[in-house]
């Protein structure tokens, strides 16, 4: 997709799904991930289809990622910082309500 950048000035280290990666200070998370060759940011909660940043200005919400201690953020509007731990948003919707027991019969 994008060319990998060489000799980063003022690099910061972060991780995605446990992989150690580096980026330029001031990069958005989305830019940092794309520049590191991360193509799939999340899976659609509807069909599980893979998704990645589309608009880069905060409008498509395709770039949601989970950041340790921050929660779910839009990667295109969040700046990468040293030591940031990023994971994909878990959206496995389990079968709901299957274990319902009738309270009165307990």
């Amino acid at each position: 997709m994008f060319r990998l950048r060489t000799n980063l000035t003022d690099p910061v280290t972060f991780s995605f799904e446990g992989r150690r990666l580096t980026a330029s200070r001031g990069d958005t998370l989305a830019a940092a991930l794309l520049a590191s060759g991360v193509f799939i940011f999340r899976n659609s909660p509807v069909s599980s289809a893979p998704r990645a940043p589309f608009c880069m200005i905060g409008n498509c919400y395709e770039c949601f990622v989970q950041v340790e201690a921050m929660g779910v953020v839009q990667a295109c509007l969040t700046e990468v910082t040293e030591g940031m731990q990023i994971t994909k948003v878990s959206n496995q919707i389990d079968e709901l309500g299957m274990d319902i027991k009738e309270v009165s019969k307990e």
């Binding site: 994008f2 330029s24 990069d27 830019a31 794309l34 200005i57 295109c76």
Partner: peptide
């Protein structure tokens, strides 16, 4: 946007 903010260039 990626070009301006992070100098990301496409292949």
């Amino acid at each position: 946007t990626l070009l301006k903010s992070s100098r990301l260039l496409p292949e």
